[in-house]
Amino acid sequence: MLLITCPWCGPRDEIEFRWGGESHIRRPTLQSSPQDEEWADYLFYRKNPKGLHRERWVHEAGCGQWFNIARDTVSHEIVEVYRMGEAHGQAERGKRP
């Protein structure tokens, strides 16, 4: 069970949130005339790390805002929460920023 600190609403139970997968994925720009491989990478391929994962969550049953979390996928420890567009810290697995 996770206790997630929404940047706007504070600490709330995980059932109020929805997980949105890996953060910081860059959409190919059309100027670069992306090939199938780039689209596949953008749409489907993921890091899926065993360890620290930077991921998006939305406070669905609360303020409705999307934000980022750095979470360890083995211990489920949340080591960092930051807003969309905000630069992330140097969080590493097991260390708090």
């Binding site: 489907f44 391929y45 993921r46 899926n48 065993k50 996928t73």
Partner: peptide
């Protein structure tokens, strides 16, 4: 569930989420 981990050792990614 460890497919991405093994793929990582071989230097590629997969369209997998565990």
């Amino acid at each position: 569930g460890h497919s991405s981990v093994l793929a990582g050792m071989a230097g590629f990614r997969l369209p997998v989420t565990s």
